[in-house]
Design a protein around this nucleic acid. Structure first.
Length: 402
RNA sequence: GGAGCGGUGUCCGAGGGGUUUAAGGAGGCGGUCUUGAAAACCGUUGUACCGCGAGGUACCGGGGGUUCGAAUCCCCCCUGCUCCGCCA
């Protein structure tokens, strides 16, 4: 990010000056045209028409310069990231994140635990090899009970969210480039994590944050209707280009997965409280599953452009490098960063239209949640217990050898 | 994918180059009248930007073009409906 605030300011000043100039010219044009409404003697009319032609020329030139300036301003302005919360830990990368809470303790086994790739193979639940042949690396087939388990995770989560007053959605898996950019994703360029659809101006979404955040783009919301709490199920697609060196075994970093995403629109004064709320919902969902996790306050360098503050939930993954915390959910307060780009406002009591604050949080990312379930609930005989909260949704209470 | 017809303000709905400053209606808000309400009547009404203000500029699905002047004419695109084709 090569953000340059000074450049944006000077471009803005320049633009305003030119805009005023252009508006004055347009005023003259309008006055001139108005003066020709009624009957005129041919001579006067001819003079008017010449005057009009001159103005038309000047306006065209001014407008062309204004458009160019506007575009430059938009490009430079879009580079400026959101502010960071003053209490967010300062730091450059994820190891500077701050653990703020721990729920449960790392699962202890009286046998050597397997990782989810081994479990998925021995229990015939996940097929990476065939997916690699058919679709490429970092794809997978879910098989047998794993198919049901994914749906159970989704349904368990949706039931939880519905009880809390979230409006449920199943969103499109594709969205327009302009929406992606409004949310703060960069769909272009080789480092992009987004798949673009050839010739359509659209992309495969990396998260339902995009479709839920785009839902009210260009609208003015009633203050009385806020806060809005949405939850959306979608598939998520990520290119993960250059992720080869990172931890990428099994389901942890894949090109496609299913996710239930929470999204909220609030007035500015309430976004902080809503952010806390979304985090507690995430905690409740993972506590309910009986999976140990910790909460991390994301450092400034790891926030990304849209986020003002971000919390990650990291679940205990016994099979990851012999036992490690692995990110399973994330919730961000993006304040008005996305609302400005997507033009989403609310009408305040003073009659003014102001930008809403927008927040998002993962309710459940099925692939990573499944890692946590399989690895934490495995048993000495190689079978896996189903977390009690999911049994009603699965219709079975364990996954045994075939 | 093909054909036909549409897209106008908060909503419905006229207007097809200059008396449009977008008619008319509905709704909302304010007021008159009333013990109160309804009805009637009067006024008001969106968004963005510039300006201390008066006020100005832009917006009739989006983008180009024609013209002294475009909601109105031309071109491209998007989108809705109806019919046809295809299809889970």
């Amino acid at each position: 990010m090569d953000a340059d605030a000074d450049l944006v300011v000077s471009l803005y000043d320049e633009k305003i000056g030119l805009q005023r100039e252009t508006e004055e010219l347009r005023k003259k044009r309008n006055d001139n045209a108005l003066a020709m409404k009624g009957k005129l003697d041919p001579e006067t009319r001819a003079v008017r028409i010449e005057e009009g032609k001159l103005l038309k020329d000047k306006i065209a030139q001014a407008e062309a310069r204004l458009t160019e300036l506007d575009n430059r301003l938009a490009v430079e302005g879009a580079k400026i990231p959101n502010m960071a919360h003053p209490e967010a830990p300062r730091g450059k990368e994820d190891k500077d994140n701050l653990e703020v809470k721990r729920v449960g303790e790392p699962t202890k086994f009286d046998f050597e635990p397997k990782d989810h790739v081994q479990l998925g193979q021995s229990l015939d639940l996940i097929d990476f090899d065939t997916a690699t042949r058919v679709s490429g690396t970092k794809f997978y087939y879910l098989k047998n009970e794993a198919v049901i388990l994914e749906m159970a995770l989704v349904r368990y989560t949706l039931d939880t969210l519905m009880k809390k007053g979230f409006t449920l959605f199943q969103t499109p898996d594709i969205a327009k480039t302009e929406i992606l950019e409004g949310i703060g994703f960069n769909p272009r360029g080789p480092e992009s994590n987004i798949y673009t659809v050839e010739g359509e101006g659209t992309c495969l979404i990396g998260t339902a944050e995009i479709t839920l955040g785009g839902y009210y783009s260009g609208s003015i919301l009633d203050k009385i209707s806020l806060p809005l709490k949405l939850a959306g199920v979608s598939h998520c697609f990520r290119r993960e280009a250059g992720a080869a060196g990172q931890f990428s075994k099994g389901l942890y970093r894949v090109h496609q997965f299913t996710k239930v995403e929470m999204f909220a629109y609030t007035v500015p004064e309430e976004s902080g409280a809503m952010h806390e709320y979304l985090r507690t919902v995430e905690e409740e969902i993972f506590s309910g599953l009986g999976i140990p996790f910790r909460v991390v306050d994301t450092c400034t360098g790891d926030l990304g452009a849209p986020a003002y503050r971000k919390w990650d939930l990291e679940a205990w993954m016994p099979g990851r490098n012999g036992g490690e915390w692995g990110e399973v959910t994330s919730t961000s307060n993006c304040t008005d960063y996305q609302a400005r780009r997507l033009n989403i406002k609310y009408k305040d009591e003073d009659g003014k239209n102001k930008h809403v604050h927008m927040l998002n949080g993962t309710a459940v990312a099925c692939s990573r949640a499944m890692i946590a379930v399989l690895e934490n609930f495995q048993r000495a005989d190689g079978s896996v217990a189903i977390p009690p909260a999911l049994v009603p949704y699965c219709g079975f209470s364990e996954i045994g050898r075939k």
